[in-house]
Design a protein around this nucleic acid. Structure first.
Lengths: 227, 227
DNA sequence: GGGATACTTGACCAAGTGGTCAAGATTTGG
DNA sequence: CCAAATCTTGACCACTTGGTCAAGTATCCC
């Protein structure tokens, strides 16, 4: 299971690197190595969680000797923090559909679609996040209580504005709606085994994700009085 | 091998103690010890998952020497299987609201309420389940693909009957509705940290769970064309 | 070229891990 | 009462863990 780590654009893009032109192969190589290790680490952490993940497993996945991993990331904890930070970034990024000017139905439809798509395309990231949360979010608590909370409060304000304009049912609490949307979409990544077992399939097909998005969208739009 | 697997009817122990009068103190004591260990184990497994949980931690939680744990449960794996089996039973038990005779709105309301209540009262059980699923459900796959799948298919048939009688919208797919309900209710146990952080609270209060149930119920009932 | 710097890696270590064991304590049934 | 069965527990073991280290190799810049 070693090869094929070349395609790891997945998690995070090249941070800056604007000045990278001067630095020759070295810097590029270091960034590439870090990327390779981070991808392997994300996969292992997503399957095992922080404690149960072993640096040996990460090394094997990255097809590198273990000592080399520790050269780039001094400790397992540092490596994990980087993985979580990267995952987080891509997680919050997708919440930009809710603005006062937007049409509620369109915003919800787009958001659900985006979330289901990332459950399909980036299940590793979703599971890293789920593991961290399930174990009490020791590395994320601060973020959750600040940045995420603020963002959801903003969305709540948008919903209030929509309700005022009669564009959405007034009794919908945006906080709890978000909890439902997060749970109902991420479940296709985090608990994919359960879903596919109940549907009687080995693996979910694209059509299943589409149907999931369509069903959830219909439920939520009607549920918010938008149909 | 004095381990005496004789009484363990594979899955789950006798809840009932009615006939306990004949059996002298020994049996009662053994059952009590097993229960005590199982409770400690469930707590530890729910926080750490199978691999990261240590028998030492379970022993400490049960206030027993580690060797004593191994006397009652030969291996960590056996102990885990018992915990999972118990959790599973209480999980599936709560799905009996959906019958053709029932009123759809009432059934959905009751089910959501029951699920949110168990997220509040039995978060440990929910998290054990979530951990197992997140790690690929090695011990549950068989169950998921059989018993649970059958149960959901039955519910699907009930929904079809309801739709035929015009008691519910015809385009609601019961499978995906169940996925949504499971996710949206269990999230208050599994990802409770996230929810409480976003709500700006240290811990969720009863009122929060009530509001969660009420909001979800409203969304789902309207979403199914029942309001 | 050559000295400095960056990277690689097999060998190693202290601290745990799940699990065993044997010697003792307690309870049982007769 | 006592011998057999059951339970308790500290000491112990083979193995894995995250992390270190020193001896090497490749690359850099002058």
């Amino acid at each position: 299971m070693r090869g094929s780590d070349a395609d790891n654009t997945i998690i995070l893009a090249d941070r800056n690197d604007g000045a990278g032109t001067v630095r020759p192969a070295r810097v590029r190589s270091r960034a590439a190595m870090e990327q390779r290790i981070l991808a392997a680490a994300a996969a292992v952490f997503s399957e095992a969680g922080f404690d149960a993940a072993t640096t040996a497993a990460i090394a094997e996945r990255a097809a590198l000797p273990k000592a080399n991993i520790h050269y780039y990331f001094r400790t397992k904890e540092l490596l994990y923090q980087k993985v979580v930070a990267d995952v987080l970034e891509s997680w919050i990024e997708r919440m930009d559909f809710f603005t006062p000017e937007a049409d509620p139905a369109t915003a919800l439809r787009s958001y659900i679609h985006a979330k289901v798509t990332s459950a399909r395309c980036y299940p590793i990231e979703s599971r890293v996040f789920a593991n961290e949360m399930l174990h009490g979010a020791p590395y994320l608590r601060r973020f959750l209580g600040r940045k995420l909370r603020d963002r959801v409060d903003e969305i709540d304000a948008v919903f209030a504005a929509w309700a005022k304009d009669g564009k959405i049912a007034a009794d919908v609490d945006a906080h709890f709606l978000m909890f439902t949307l997060w749970a109902a979409t991420q479940t296709y990544a985090d608990f994919g085994v359960q879903v596919s077992a109940v549907l009687g399939k080995d693996k979910l097909a694209d059509a299943d994700y589409e149907r999931a998005a369509q069903q959830l969208t219909a439920l939520v739009l009607r549920g918010c009085g938008l149909r």
